[in-house]
Design a binder for these strands. Structure first.
Lengths: 190, 190
DNA sequence: TAGAATGCGGACCGTCGGTCCGTTACGACT
DNA sequence: AGTCGTAACGGACCGACGGTCCGCATTCTA
């Protein structure tokens, strides 16, 4: 049952596609970026892109993983205040602030990501992880029957399209958005 | 400057298209419904659909208006507890519950609606109205600087895709979702 | 009832996500 | 180094989509 090692060119191309795709997303925004244009920008055939990532959603997932892995890792096994072991009253606001911050720094990328899972952010795998983590902490503070919904509601307040609306349409500085969020989380916590 | 009255067949067709489109959305879900299939189901040419509604977003907007008008009207000028004049502590939960209820009763339609505005629910015109109304009430209860964000956050908790996730994926009965939401709103209110 | 204007409808267009398969080049083995 | 099986490449190709266009039919006005 050996893992069949990938060929060198496959690995190289995979990386090139990810780099090109990320650059395109940041520069042009989700809607403008077709699979064709990604392939062209990476200097690679279309078939190669699909071979490596299965479909558009797969490419976005991969892009997501790469970009969000550090944050998720910090939350899963890092030091306080993000990591486990931190008291819930401190960890929950820290987690939400970290998520908001990451999204505010990469608006278009995260908007694209949340539209991946058959156009429902709730089907993106990482959502389940964040929700589970948050619910776990909330269960220490309140009736476990309420923790699930509460976790959903708090995560809804940091959705990428809301962050985009606040930052772009309403023109609120990122700093201020995070402050408002923090105040909100504080008041919503049981 | 007379308003150029529409021809009888145009009015008739417009109605037929709306009926057919609504039926299709409810039965098949957003993704399955192409402009072609709407035209076919309405027994009408594709050009007619586009002439009447400009583009796909326009069709969804029109569908939206028709379906949500009664609720919005009740909230804008109806009797308590939805209408204006109701004390904020009573009106805000009532508004959010009414919205949640409407969405839970028409999941697929509302999911489709919220994806209309260039894939951002915040660009759908009616969102602005709800947000403004809610903010107005919240300003009576708390620091006006916080009211805007708070209104966004509360509305985020009743987004159609979240309602769908809770009701379909997690299989929670509508009754229970509304109870959890009510408890959440209560605790988040200043 | 005639003529103008309005609306109809479906062939047509460019583009998209995704597939297919003949060709290329990698790398394990001798 | 040379051979060869095979994984990976790449772009022509496909069906479906949203949207346009324009010759033709229907409705309204006088």
């Amino acid at each position: 049952m050996r893992e069949p090692r990938s060929r060198a060119d496959a690995v190289r191309n995979r990386e090139a596609v990810l780099d090109a795709a990320e650059a395109l997303f940041v520069r042009e925004g989700l809607a403008q970026v077709s699979m064709n244009s990604v392939a062209a920008a990476a200097g690679v055939g279309k078939g190669t892109v699909f071979r490596a990532f299965t479909d558009r959603a797969g490419l976005l997932q991969a892009l997501a993983g790469r970009r969000t892995a550090p944050l998720q890792e910090a939350a899963a096994e890092g030091p306080a205040p993000l990591g486990p072991g931190t008291p819930p009253r401190e960890r929950i606001p820290a987690l939400l602030d970290a998520v908001a911050r990451a999204k505010l720094d990469n608006l278009s990328l995260y908007v694209a990501l949340e539209e991946t899972g058959s156009s429902s952010p709730y089907r993106v795998p990482s959502y389940g992880w964040w929700h589970g983590t948050l619910r776990g902490e909330l269960e220490k503070l309140t009736d476990p029957a309420h923790a699930g919904f509460l976790a959903h509601a708090l995560l809804a307040a940091v959705r990428a399209d809301l962050m985009t609306h606040l930052a772009v349409e309403e023109g609120i500085p990122a700093e201020e958005i995070r402050e408002r969020l923090a105040a909100y989380v504080e008041s919503a916590l049981p």
